[in-house]
Structure formats: structure tokens, C-alpha cells
Nucleic acid binder design. Structure first.
Length: 565
RNA sequence: GCGUCCGUAGCUCAGUCGGAUAGAGCGUUGGUCUCCGAAGCCAGAGGUCAUGGGUUCGACUCCCAUCGGACGCACCA
């Protein structure tokens, strides 16, 4: 159990007893949920619970309430002090040692939790048109979705990652026409470009491949496949692994779209107006009704999307999570309306609306998604690397617009926070390596035997006792840095759980930086490899813990944890 | 006009639940390697939390209004 929950439970139990003994004034029922937090000022303690809000019902002053509750707490492994309305807890050495042992015991699974309770989740993201390369915005959704899937799976959600291929609309005709013109150009014909096509140069390469392959496929089919292939390749490089690429076209081929329309019609949710078929979405939370079939008889994008969401629900998912750009927010109400209209419960659909990414180049802001001057994700990854791109995309809350300054990312790439974090990991690895390497005695210029054998390092496990690290002789700074590192390692449980629950990978980015800082402090004040073998092995144990936890966090983010840099 | 998101240090952003002295990175000023990785560490400067009201013992946090910015409001996808 994470310490926060432990102390919250402890306080809740103490309140029960205090009420029983009538020590909390007028308070008779304990419906207080203690919230345990980490004090900003560590002088107060490692954890704190504020009980001030009991003051009103108890009709007592907060300091007295805190004191009276604290009197009923059994101190075991920690000390307690009360200040104002706060009950503060400070861990004693035994408890800190237990954390270290627990990490060495559970290793990579240390910060896993059960918040998901096995919930079957469909996570749909990226879902780009197969009409060209990804732009940088897609990179944000790709990084976010894949990382969120990692985190949620780790916390016992059962996440199925899905990419919806928009391969059925008008844009495919435009793509086909664009390729046709490029092929003609390649063959030396003079062509005239029409409005609204895809003038991107990537179709020149596609045209070359088309000619080379001697394909008899239609331009549209060939271009779609080719674009999808390129998209899949990039996703792989970008460490994004979809369980399924779901084709919009397949919904038409399987007649699911028509069946869905029929079902809505049978339920009386459709009507005709101006030659079109409308869906009564305004009966739900939508602001107005929506067209499903246009006057020309073709379906709107929404129609297939309704069928798609029905398909997902019929596959047995308990929760649908969609990651959409903020420009689609107006779309949520109509999809929810359709889910309800079909007799499902729209509260199972969770839409994560991500703010957009602005590209800044040469100090000038460019809109993403404009076909000309578009910066593609390939180019960005090529220039700044997968790790930095992913970290950069993930480190901010999705509610914040990202200004991605390409020049900054390129010119100052070593100042990117991801390097700081990776450096700490490499440093820990380096120490573990050095422990088993031969050393050079600088005074006598003699080679010394390694401090440890690999076997001894491997044997630093849950049985280790690191209590000696808190002896006064180790120095105040070293003891404080050691305590802080252990506490920060323990915090991983709460952070990972919050990241899964709040669908917020950025919390891990923030935490990884804090954890790295805690390790750097520890390193600075506590020499790991010394002639005192006992102290060395104790500090190596902590180094191992750090490597395990940071490695896991980076792994969840889809960022590499290098042994060397 | 309506809706969603944002406004916190020079810049980019955290601040989970309403609580103790407002937090980090970059930038800036100074210090710090004979010794495990100085891509590090330490210290300093830098704030009217957009503005005005309200709720509360207590508001960066909740509510209302105003100002400023991004995005949307299709028989496009």
C-alpha cells in the first residue's frame, strides 16, 4: 500500500476511536475522508493530513482537533507532530528500509496498481486520413495514446489500441486524382492541377512507385495502401503499437452503416428535410440535428462514425476512450447522442480533447495541418529523435497548446529535459558498472581489484538492510538526500496511479525529472563506491532501486533508458 | 453571438483535494571536479497567480462578470 493511503487510513481509524471517547466535541459520525499530501515544506514531515475541515461539525479549534486525533494514533515506524490543523508524519528508518526492500523485491512491478480492475477499454487515437504523411499534431496523439496505453495496462486496465482509417470519404477521390496527375507528370505529360487536391511532394514518390510496380490497381487503392504503409512504418519507429487498424470502408462493405441507419430509423430518431435524412441529435445534448444522408444520397462522415462506435460497443468494450484534437470538440455531443439513441449509455465514451500543436520555425508560427509548408512528423523525428520528440509531446497537460519550436529543439537538444532524466539513468548504470570494474589507484598507479563481483551485485536484493545509511556520522546532507530519494521512489506508486486514472502521462514526465533530481542530490552528498564495502552495498541498493523505478517510468512513457550516453 | 481550452517569474510550464513561506526547467548572476559521468550540484536575483466581485475560518484552486489568446460552431473529413 502506498504511504499516502496508509496514513489516511490511520487517521480515519484514530478519528473513529476519538469520537467513541467523545474527544471531538460535537462530532458523532466519521464521514471524513482524510487526504494525505506531501508537505511543500519538508520541515513539517514527509506526509501531512489536514483535519481543519472537521472544525465546523466538531465545534472545536483545528489545533485541538489535530492533537486529539493524534493521541489515538499508534506510532509504529513513524513519528507524528501536529501544527495548526495539520497532523504531520515522519517516517523512521525501519519504514524507509522497508521501501527499499519492497522495490528490490517487486522490481519493475513496484509502482503498478489495480485502479483499472481489469476494465476492458478501447483506446482510439491518431486515426489519420490515409492521404499523406503525419504532421506534428499527429505526433502528439501518437505519443499520448501509446503512453497512456502503457500506463493503463500497467495499472490493470485491459487496453486495446485502435487506429480508425478514414478510407471511405471524398478525400480518397481527391487523393486518387492527385496521384493520377503525379503519374502523368512522371510520364512527361503536362497536367493542370485543380483546386483542393493534395499537392504535397510525397505523392511524387508514390507516383514513381506506382509506375515502377506496374500496378493495375486503381490510383485510389494504390495511394491509400502506400500512405498507410508509410504511416505504419513511422508509428513503429515512434514506438506506437496498435492492436488494430480499423477500416471505415469495411463498415460499408459489411453493411454496418446501412444497418445502423435502419436501426435509428426504426427507433424513430430520423426524419427527412430538404431531401436529406436528419438525425434528431438535439433530443439529446447536441445543439442541433445532424444530417446522416445528404441530398445526393451519400452518407456524411458522422454516419459511418456512428456505426463505428456501435461496432466498438458490440465488441464488448466497457469503456471507449477517443483522443481527439480540440478542433473536434463540437463533434462529441453528436456522437454521444447517437450512442444513447441506439440504446447504449454514452457515459462509457470518454473523449480526451487535446489542444493543438503550433509549429514555430524561424520565429514564425505556422498552423499545423495546412498542406503547404507542413512540417511532417518524419522530419521532426529525424531532426530531434524519437525520445526527445515523445518527451516533448508528453510533458505538458493536454489542456495546453504546445508551441513546438523546431529551431530550439534542434539547437538546444541537449538542454531538453529528457536528456537530464536519461543522464541520471546512465549515471546510475555507470556506478553499477564501475562497482565490478578494476580501479586505478592514482597515487601508486597500481590496478586494484574490483570492489564487488557481479555475483555480489546481483545478490543485493530484498534482504539488504540499509539502516546504516542513517547513522549520524554519515552527515546531515547525506542522510537527508537518502531519505528524500527513498520517499521520492515511493511516490511513484501514487504518481503512476494518478497518471492512469486521470489519463495524464505528463505527470510521469514531471515525476521523472523530480526523481532524477533526487538521485543527483543523493549522488552529490553520498559517495556510493567507497572502501567501506557495507556502506557501498547499501548505497548500491538504492542506486539499483532508482534504476528500476526510473527505467520503468521511462518505459511507460515510451522513452529509452540508456545505460550509457 | 454560442461552446471548449488557456491566462501563474524575462521565456516555457507545474501547482491532483480549497489549506502551512507560490514551484520547476530554460535564461541570468556567483560558487563548485586530484575522487563513482560537471549533460551534474549549491546559492542569489526574478511574482499584484489577467482584472473586478462573490462563497469560505481560509481561494492560484470553487461561482459570476469583464478583458486578452487558441480552437470550433458544414448536406467537409
Amino acid at each position: 500500500m502506498m504511504k499516502k493511503d496508509f496514513f489516511a487510513q490511520t487517521v480515519h481509524g484514530a478519528i473513529d476511536k476519538a469520537i467513541e471517547d467523545k474527544k471531538l466535541g460535537n462530532l458523532e459520525i466519521n464521514n471524513f475522508t482524510p487526504i494525505c499530501e506531501i508537505p511543500k515544506n519538508t520541515q513539517f514531515g514527509d506526509f501531512a493530513i489536514n483535519v481543519s475541515s472537521l472544525a465546523r461539525d466538531a465545534k472545536m479549534a483545528p489545533p485541538l482537533i489535530a492533537q486529539n486525533i493524534a493521541n489515538y494514533i499508534e506510532y509504529k515506524g513513524f513519528s507524528v507532530n501536529t501544527v495548526a490543523g495539520f497532523i504531520n508524519f515522519k517516517l523512521e528508518e525501519d519504514m524507509l528500509c522497508d521501501i527499499t526492500r519492497d522495490i528490490l523485491d517487486k522490481k519493475e512491478s513496484y509502482c503498478a496498481s489495480d485502479v483499472g480492475k481489469g476494465e476492458k477499454v478501447n483506446l482510439e487515437y491518431v486515426s489519420a486520413n490515409p492521404t499523406g504523411p503525419f504532421h506534428i499534431g499527429h505526433g502528439r496523439w501518437a505519443a499520448l495514446g501509446s503512453s497512456l496505453a502503457n500506463i493503463m495496462n500497467y495499472c490493470n486496465y485491459n487496453v486495446y489500441q485502435e487506429f480508425y482509417i478514414n478510407d471511405a470519404g471524398n478525400q480518397i477521390n481527391k487523393l486518387a486524382r492527385s496521384l493520377e496527375l503525379r503519374v502523368k507528370e512522371q510520364k512527361g505529360e503536362k497536367v493542370e492541377w485543380e483546386e483542393d487536391l493534395y499537392p504535397g511532394e510525397y505523392l511524387i514518390d508514390c507516383a514513381k512507385r506506382y509506375i515502377e510496380s506496374g500496378s493495375s490497381e486503381s490510383y485510389g487503392d494504390f495511394a491509400k495502401k502506400d500512405m498507410l504503409r508509410l504511416q505504419k512504418e513511422l508509428l513503429k519507429t515512434f514506438r506506437v503499437n496498435f492492436d488494430c487498424f480499423f477500416s471505415e470502408l469495411s463498415l460499408y462493405k459489411n453493411d454496418e452503416v446501412e444497418k445502423c441507419v435502419k436501426e435509428l430509423e426504426d427507433k424513430g430518431k430520423l426524419y427527412k428535410k430538404d431531401g436529406a435524412v436528419w438525425f434528431r441529435s438535439s433530443e439529446y445534448t447536441d445543439t442541433q440535428d445532424r444530417v446522416l444522408k445528404k441530398a445526393d444520397g451519400s452518407n456524411t462522415y458522422l454516419t459511418a462514425d456512428i456505426a463505428y462506435h456501435k461496432n466498438k460497443l458490440d465488441r464488448g468494450f466497457e469503456r471507449l476512450i477517443n483522443i481527439w484534437g480540440a478542433d473536434h470538440h463540437g463533434y462529441i455531443a453528436r456522437i454521444k447522442a447517437s450512442i444513447d439513441a441506439l440504446g447504449y449509455d454514452s457515459s462509457c465514451l470518454e473523449v480526451l480533447l487535446g489542444q493543438l500543436v503550433n509549429i514555430i520555425q524561424n520565429g514564425e508560427q505556422m498552423r499545423m495541418g495546412k498542406r503547404k509548408k507542413m512540417v511532417t512528423l518524419d522530419e521532426l523525428v529525424e531532426e530531434v529523435g524519437v525520445d526527445a520528440t515523445r518527451f516533448w509531446m508528453l510533458m505538458r497537460s493536454i489542456d495546453t497548446t504546445i508551441d513546438f519550436d523546431i529551431d530550439l529543439a534542434k539547437s538546444q537538444s541537449d538542454k531538453n529535459p529528457v536528456f537530464y532524466v536519461q543522464y541520471a539513468h546512465a549515471r546510475a548504470c555507470s556506478i553499477l558498472r564501475k562497482a565490478v570494474e578494476k580501479r586505478l589507484d592514482t597515487e601508486n598507479k597500481k590496478e586494484l581489484e574490483p570492489l564487488f563481483s557481479q555475483d555480489e551485485i546481483d545478490k543485493i536484493d530484498k534482504n539488504i538492510d540499509i539502516k546504516g545509511l542513517f547513522d549520524e556520522e554519515k552527515g546531515k546532507e547525506s542522510i537527508e538526500a537518502t531519505r528524500a530519494l527513498i520517499l521520492k521512489l515511493e511516490e511513484s506508486i501514487a504518481i503512476v496511479e494518478a497518471a492512469a486514472r486521470l489519463r495524464a502521462p505528463y505527470l510521469l514526465c514531471k515525476y521523472s525529472q523530480e526523481l532524477a533530481t533526487a538521485f543527483h542530490h543523493f549522488y552529490n552528498y553520498s559517495r556510493v563506491l567507497t572502501d567501506d564495502k557495507k556502506v557501498s552495498s547499501q548505497r548500491l541498493a538504492l542506486t539499483k532501486c532508482f534504476k528500476i523505478i526510473l527505467g520503468k517510468i521511462l518505459n511507460l512513457l515510451g522513452v529509452s533508458a540508456p545505460e550509457k550516453m
